Structures are given as C-alpha cells and as structure tokens.
Computed example of a mutant assay.
Amino acid sequence: MNTQRPVDVHAHAVIPRYHRLLAEAGVAIPGYGTGGPGLVGEQDAVTDTDDAIARRISMMDHAGVGRQLLSAIFAPYLTDESAAVGAARCVNDAHAEMAAKQPDRLAAYAALPLPHVDASLLELRRCLDDLGMVGIALQCFCFDESLAAERFEPIYAELNRRKAVVFFHPCVNGLCSPLISQWGLAPTAGAVFEDTTIALHLIVRQIPHRFPDIRFIVPHLGGALPMLLSRLDNQLPLSTPGLPERPSVTARRFFYDTVGHGSAAALRCAVDAFGADRIVPGSDYPVLLGFESYADTFGYLQHAGLPETALHQILTANVGQLFERK
C-alpha cells in the first residue's frame, strides 16, 4: 500500500440502496422513515455516485490524503440469515465498485453478515479473494453480544490464517445500558465506551495471543483505554487470572486511529500510552463534517505539539507496517 501520503483508515460512504435495504429490514437508519435529519440526502458528496466520488477525491487532495479505506456506517447484522447475507453483499459490492473506479485512492474493508458465522466465512472469502478488499470491519457488538465472544472464533481463526487486518467500529448501542441510552449518551460517551470495552474483551479473551497474526485497529484513539493502562495492570489480573502478560502490553499490540474530534490532549495521551508507532490516521468521514472540515480532521495532528518523528510515524509510516504482508 502506497503510504507517501496519509491513508485514512476510518472513512465511510453513504450507500442509499444499502441503507434503504436495512431500513426495510427494520434497522433504524437516520433519514429513512424517521421524519428527522439524517446522513442520507444531507450531503451528496458522501454517496457513491460518480460525481460524488470525484468530489470525494478532490476533498482528499485538498487535505493531502492519499487513500481512504471505506467501511459500512451501519453493519449488515440481521437475525434472518438470508437478509443479512443480502445486505452484506449489497454494501460490499457497492464499496468494491467505488474502489474499482479509483483503485489508487479508495479501498474497502469487508462487512460480514453476522451473527451467522458460516455465512460470514463465505462472505469473508469472497471479499478478500474476489473483491480484493484490504481487511474486515467488525462492529464492537452484534446486537447484545461482544464480537470477542467464543462463538465467533472461527472467524478469527480464518483471519489469523490470512494475516488480515480487522477494523472495529462502534454500533452505537449504548452498551445495552439504559444508564447510557436513556440519557442520550449512546453516540457520544457510549461510542467511546464501546471502543474501550471491545479492546478489553479482546484482552480478557486473549484474542491477540491466540490469533497473533491478526492486526487490529481500535477507533477513536482507543476510547478511554489510554487512561486505564496502569489500573488494568494492577487490577485486571485479580479478576482475570492467567493473562499471558500485563494488559498494558497487550493493549500496545493494537493500532488506534486518530479520530478525536480535534482534541490534541486526547491524541497526546494516546501517543504517550501506546506509542506513536501504534497510531494511524482516521477521519470518520462524513460523521464529523458538521463540526470540522475534512482537512481539519487531519490538521489537528499538526498542532498537537508532537515531535516531528512521531508525526511522521502517525501520518505515513505506521499504515505501511499495519498492512504489510508478514
């Protein structure tokens, strides 16, 4: 993967036909049947039309970004297996079509039709072997179940065999807690807690040790994880005996993207906690467009007070390491 310019590892595109399909299956999609504002239709630059793709590339050029890696905003997780497979194929084909029009500038992670493991393995193989996708995107949770749960291990085994990249993303379920959701916190603090929790679940289940050839990306600077490492080292072994190493060491095996709503303090905390060699560029495009421009999403890194060597690692060097074939 060419990394002379930053690679945005965390970007999305609105695929209207896919979102319509999910809405018809009963998934709450903003802009479909809600009567309120949503992603769809607000900015045609975030869709998959030819004109919109051209505007996306122009925006990337203005920001100095070389490539975007696309993942689904809403995962194709449906209880009906055939519906889940149809939704996964829809979004994966749409992303593959976008990437084929700009192969040097766009690529995509595969979405899987969870919770259906056998069907997900088939779609994983189709996407990586036939569609040429760069990795797999998983939401932190499938309904009320962690993606670190034991029954999903066949997927990790296949990903480990392929030495694949796995990108996690919040599903905005508020951790199934009314103390989050009923207070309107699911998209804000809830998403951060999802990032933190899936990383902790992976550590507790020893996923990075049992499947050591998978490279994981945890979004949003790891949520609250950078501030918990010492506490985890002190206390987690008491409730989870038998861990192969200190939790802080395992946490430094993950990569983390830079999506932080422009918070230089959060970025510096993550760099200090994990090391500059574990941080990769991300934008969460188009989610933050109401708050900052696409260029500003990366511009805040330049003004965070990081050493030039650390900034170079984050912006250009680490993605090459992340996606290199071992």
Rank of each mutant, 00 (worst) to 15 (best):
A110G: 09
P237N: 04
A270E: 04
L138C: 05
E292D: 12
D104C: 07
D48S: 08
D44I: 05
R246K: 15
P115F: 11
P212S: 09
L288E: 14
R17S: 15
D8P: 13
H303K: 10
L179V: 13
R205L: 01
C140P: 04
A304P: 00
L225G: 05
P37C: 08
D104L: 12
V27M: 15
V218L: 14
F291S: 14
M133I: 09
P187C: 05
S263A: 03
W183A: 14
P247C: 07
L70A: 08
V7W: 05
A191L: 11
L225F: 10
G305C: 09
M133W: 01
T3H: 14
R55V: 11
R162I: 00
A191N: 09
N173L: 12
E153C: 02
P154I: 04
N234T: 13
L236P: 00
D50V: 14
Q313K: 13
G35P: 11
D44S: 14
V165Y: 05
V166L: 14
D195I: 07
A149K: 10
L114E: 03
A270N: 03
L301H: 00
A137F: 10
A251V: 01
R325G: 10
I279S: 03
P212K: 01
Q235N: 11
I155E: 00
Y32I: 11
G38R: 00
G174R: 07
S239P: 01
G31Q: 05
D130Q: 14
A45Y: 09
D284L: 06
A186P: 03
A72W: 04
L70Q: 01
L322C: 06
Y77W: 03
L311G: 07
G320L: 04
Y256G: 10
G38S: 01
E308H: 08
L138Y: 09
V46M: 15
V280K: 01
A310V: 04
R278K: 13
A11V: 04
A111W: 00
E123Q: 08
G222P: 12
F323T: 15
V65L: 14
A28C: 03
T258N: 03
N173M: 13
T316I: 15
S230F: 08
E42I: 00
I29A: 00
P178N: 10
Y109M: 02
H95V: 03
D213V: 09
F255R: 07
R210D: 12
R278E: 06
V204Y: 06
L122R: 15
V9H: 04
M60H: 00
S239R: 14
P37F: 04
I29T: 09
F323Q: 10
P113Y: 07
G305E: 01
A191D: 02
D272M: 13
G184N: 00
L311M: 11
A108P: 06
D296Q: 15
